[in-house]
Amino acid sequence: MKPSPLDYVRATSVDHAIELLASDNDARLLAGGQSLMPVLNLRLGAPELVVDIGRIDELRSLEFADGDVPATRGVLRIGAAMTQTEVATHPDVNGRWPMLVAAIAQIGHPQIRNRGTVCGSLAHNDPQAELPAVAVALGATMIARSVRGERSLSADDMFHGAFTTALEADEMITAVEFPEPSPEQGWSFREFSRQPGDFATAGVAAVVRRNAGSIESRLVVFGLGGGPTRATLIEEALLNAAGPDLESSVIEQWAATLDPVDDAHTSARSKIRHAQRLLVEAVAEAWERM
């Protein structure tokens, strides 16, 4: 057997799961398992207890809440046991949250998305993962529960460095809420990977919209080693821009703030070049859709 010896418990409710998390500080949650299982098989991690939350009924939900007044946008609430395939193939998600669907299409392969969950990817915060970047770009909110209570975490506060988040060890994400993009909002999701289905070498999730004469944007870069990171220098440069074309000096200034490391496949320099190109393309595409 490949994983180290462990105990497995299938949680029957969220209360059950958070009690198990609170009682054993070497417990790990198993939802889709598409990140945890490789870690266990390679023995990069050896938790004593694996708590399976994949079949908890109250987490198997996809809800659409309409805004209270016409001006408020709707909200998509995704329960923690919903797979990426289930979310991306829902017709309403496809029509109203196109960036989420486009990003999910880039996650691994169909077999991975058939098991992998949206919330699991957010909780894991792999630096090369698509969904944390999308959560930041779309201003998502994570709902976290522990025996101490429930709290909401904005995407801006949630993601720290690689594989680290604001979640406490005894907390679990029960759902994520994505506000509905406004109709005048443009978006783009682009990533480069060495071959289809591979982890991203670099990627960009971009949202731009006009607001009272200026351009508000959320430009999120991922894959470069840390968690999802906003390109604030570029966002500021776009504030009063008349078009999507960016000054090369601004791009170079922003690129100088990036700090990826060389890996077996791609040099740090090459990663920065990919990120620059993807950002320029994403801004242009999002602007066109605005």
Binding site: Y8, L30, G33, Q34, D52
Partner: peptide, 21 residues
């Protein structure tokens, strides 16, 4: 992909699941 099986009709990697699941 060599270990792919159908779970309730959908293809999944059987190496990324525990038997109790």
């Amino acid at each position: 992909g060599a270990c792919t099986v159908l779970l309730d009709g959908l293809p999944v990697r059987s190496c990324l699941m525990l038997a109790p699941q």
